[in-house]
């Protein structure tokens, strides 16, 4: 059999093709490790105490840090969660508990999908026209608004998914005891799904934490502290962008440091989510 030349050729083709799929996987994973390694090597050398505690130095002067950008990113994420999480969460509760397969639920899911596919820069335009123009100022508020909208689709999807995982018997048990529906949802179903819900929200936050495009003309940037919510603010991703395309060696160094910090945030949250959830459903 093996000497049959046709069979031999087919076997070779088989091995070659299967090996090349393995090679594809190897290349893809290598690219990831190269990226992580490159960022780690360049970032660690640049990371120091000043990075976390000092303001940016005036242009041309070496040293300084990104304290204002770190606080700025924190404020933006806080505001984004205030806007994105309630809308996404209760929208998801509606889909899982009330809407189910109805017409309204269909359109809400459709809108969520559309929103998920809208390029982040277009969300930036939306926030610009809706918040920046009327207020006549770039602000933390506008940036947080843009990021908040970006959080909605994933918040809706994960909420719906994790609530649906809770077996009907649990709801029925509460019903049988005469518990009102809203109490069942808030105090029985949601706590039962809590781990998944929290993880979903954290993943959502990690995703928007690195968003740059919607901040470019909403939160803008700032080389000093931003007070309150109505002033332009620095943020880590926008700082990485600004510093990377600037012609100063020292700024490039700090951009790598900021990239490492962002990268660690993303890795910790994604890795953590993987630990907490036995098999996370694939949310793309």
């Amino acid at each position: 059999m093996v000497r049959d030349p046709l069979m031999a050729r087919r076997n070779w083709a088989n091995r070659l093709a299967l090996a090349s799929t393995g090679l594809c996987a190897l290349v893809t994973v290598s690219v990831l490790f190269f990226l992580l390694g490159y960022i780690a090597v360049n970032g660690i050398g640049a990371l120091n105490w000043a990075f976390f505690t000092q303001l940016p130095k005036p242009v041309g002067e070496p040293g300084g840090g990104m304290a204002n950008a770190i606080v700025g990113t924190g404020k933006l994420l806080f505001l984004a969660s205030l806007i994105g999480v309630p809308i996404g969460f209760f929208g998801g509760v509606y889909l899982a508990e009330f809407g189910r397969n109805g017409k309204i639920a269909f359109w809400v899911r459709y809108a969520t999908d559309v929103l998920n596919g809208v390029p982040s820069i277009v969300i930036g335009i939306f926030a610009y026209v809706l918040v920046v123009l009327p207020m006549k100022s770039f602000s933390t508020l506008a940036g947080g608004f843009a990021l908040g909208i970006m959080m909605i689709p994933i918040a809706v999807r994960t909420t719906e998914e994790f609530l649906k995982l809770i077996p009907a018997s649990i709801r029925e048990a509460a019903d049988a005891l005469g518990v009102q529906r809203w109490k069942t949802i808030l105090f029985v179903v949601i706590p039962a799904a809590f781990r998944g819900l929290l993880t979903g929200i954290l993943l959502d936050l990690a995703r928007v934490a690195g968003e740059t495009a919607p901040l470019l003309f909403t939160a803008l940037n700032n080389r000093v502290w931003s007070h309150g919510w109505m002033e332009p603010t620095a943020s880590l991703p926008v700082m990485i962008y600004t510093y990377a395309i600037a012609p100063y060696e020292d700024w490039h160094r700090q951009a790598w440091a900021a990239a490492l910090v962002l990268m660690l945030l993303v890795l910790v949250v994604n890795g953590g989510a993987r630990m907490v959830l036995p098999r996370r459903s694939v949310v793309v």
């Binding site: 690219v31 991703p237 962002l262 993303v266 994604n270």
Partner: peptide
């Protein structure tokens, strides 16, 4: 690991790209 590639912020791809 492949999904992690999708989680890396776009601006970091730009930085490495540049």
């Amino acid at each position: 690991l492949v999904e992690l590639l999708a989680a890396i912020p776009s601006v970091i791809y730009g930085l490495v790209g540049l």
